[in-house]
Design a protein around this nucleic acid. Sequence first.
DNA 1: AAATAATAGGTGTACATACATACAAAAGAT
DNA 2: ATCTTTTGTATGTATGTACACCTATTATTT
Lengths: 160, 160
Amino acid sequence: MHVCTYICIVKLEDAIKSTSFASQKQKAGLNILYTAWWLKSMLSKELKVFELTHEQYNVLRILKGKHPEQMCVKDIGGRMIEPSSNVPRIIDRLVAKHFVERATSASDKRETVITLTNVGINVLKQATVTVNNIMQQRIQMKEADALELNNLLENMRVDQ
Amino acid sequence: MHVCTYICIVKLEDAIKSTSFASQKQKAGLNILYTAWWLKSMLSKELKVFELTHEQYNVLRILKGKHPEQMCVKDIGGRMIEPSSNVPRIIDRLVAKHFVERATSASDKRETVITLTNVGINVLKQATVTVNNIMQQRIQMKEADALELNNLLENMRVDQ
DNA sequence: AAATAATAGGTGTACATACATACAAAAGAT
DNA sequence: ATCTTTTGTATGTATGTACACCTATTATTT
């Protein structure tokens, strides 16, 4: 039986109330989906203070990586963790909050170039401190284990 | 450089075009999010043939686990991989396709009990064959590695 | 140069998530 | 027995995803 006191490690069986899995491989699939949800919901909770969703935060971080250079929508899209994200609409919301600015590219009028504003940079800076702290506290893993995990995840994905 | 021929293993660096991570632990977080997206989008693609989203498929599978018993909305919700899923609305769509039926519980009129229809059972059966095949082919992992992965994922999640 | 194809971005729709709220029914308190 | 609280479900709103389609611009072909 699972008892939750101060620190609580939730087994998948408890989380989704399922006791039998066809294989460890099948369980691993569900475990990845559940852990991703767990990560995302932790992030979202922290980011709410800054009026950011974790997708909006992701876009700001991508922009920060090139700042003070601008980036076009396509380049941002290519760096999203979830590649099918609809970047124009995420940018709509960042523009509404004055965290970024939109302009048509001079060199290619099809492109829209996005720039971080000072407000955006400040919000991102504060949000990042919080996010990093939470990640440090809530993810329990030695670097060697993390490396092992990264190898397992990268080798499991068969494309085509 | 990464070349994709027949079987193609995508490194996270290529997927999100980022080359530097603060730590293996931070990379692991992103890797989990990306792998979850990869899994979900594969599933969704396969399930489209059956007019199912992967959340709808998840609900059908949960119902199958108790069949021919009925389940109430709350019990279904407690078994979802993403616990904050809005189960009533997913059920709306399954009812519209005649895969499940809704009825008010006799023992507790607050509860709505959900029953799999024969159509639902057949669709689930066919969808499951396809899903299992795809998982078998696209997830490359030995059982021992899957066990290792499950342990890493379950031990990393610190709640509270 | 004119016609055609490819590309970048935006938009519409269906579905899902996250969270707040509403309402009816059941459980508990007095 | 009546009042209060809790519970189960549904619904409204903002956001995001997945995918199709449209338009403007650029690149390519002839």
